[in-house]
């Protein structure tokens, strides 16, 4: 682990963070919701994700400030995104993300989304205010098995507690077919506390899976 440096993400990391978002969103599938729900190619989507990060909005999954990066020999090899829900100006992260997408993706993409939104609504999960939301967690394959996941989890929690000492809970929303990620979370003290399933088989054309789990780790009790 000594050869790895974990640090806050900076603007120069943005193209790498876009890759982290894409890899995490796909999970164990080839379905990327930014492309399937907005009728964009993956190449276009990456450019738009970069644009959204460059807006440097705080408090959501597309905030530069939400990410930490692991460096190895001067290059980023992992990225993790986490933020405290509603901590910044009491705005829900879902609204901040929606604003970014509405602004960046353009009218045609939102018009396309209108025709597909009914397919995915059953797997949308509200985020609990003042909890730490862990959304993206990606380590390059060649750096797996080196204890990075434990070091990253610890750093994410430490950073959040430094910002908000009263923090009690970490939550993560994850598709049920992301079995390796689920195992990692269970190993780090998370429990499955909810499940949201869509009965619409069409969802498999647009999202990685038809069921999303809500996982939770309690940091401290009252």
């Amino acid at each position: 682990m000594n050869e790895y440096l974990i640090r806050k993400a900076i603007a120069a990391d943005i193209p790498f963070l876009a890759d982290v978002v894409i890899a995490s969103e796909k999970g164990m599938s080839d379905r990327l919701s930014f492309t399937t729900l907005f009728n964009k190619s993956e190449e276009e989507t990456k450019k738009l994700i970069i644009q959204m990060f460059e807006e440097e909005i705080d408090g959501c999954e597309l905030s530069l400030s939400s990410f930490i990066v692991t460096e190895f020999e001067g290059k980023p090899v992992s990225g993790s995104g986490a933020w405290i829900e509603c901590f910044h100006e009491n705005m829900q992260s879902g609204i901040l993300k929606s604003n970014l997408i509405s602004y960046t993706f353009g009218k045609e993409s939102i018009e396309y989304l209108k025709t597909k939104s009914h397919i995915v609504k059953d797997v949308l999960i509200d985020r609990e205010p003042m909890t730490l939301q862990l959304e993206y967690f990606h380590i390059k394959d060649e750096h797996l098995g080196k204890g990075l996941d434990a070091a990253l989890m610890e750093r994410i929690e430490q950073n959040a507690l430094a910002e908000y000492p009263e923090l009690k809970k970490v939550q993560c929303q994850i598709f049920k077919n992301s079995v390796f990620s689920i195992k990692i979370l269970l190993r780090h003290g998370f429990k499955i506390v909810g499940s949201y399933k869509s009965g619409n088989e069409e969802i498999f054309d647009y999202l990685p899976y038809n069921e999303k789990l809500l996982m939770e780790k309690i940091l401290k009790t009252d």
């Binding site: 009218k107 939102i110 939104s117």
Partner: peptide, 16 residues
């Protein structure tokens, strides 16, 4: 916070 199905998805549709 006041409207049950006002979520991230419907917010984009609303803005549009």
């Amino acid at each position: 916070l006041d409207v049950e199905n006002w979520d991230s998805l419907s917010h984009m549709l609303l803005i549009s």
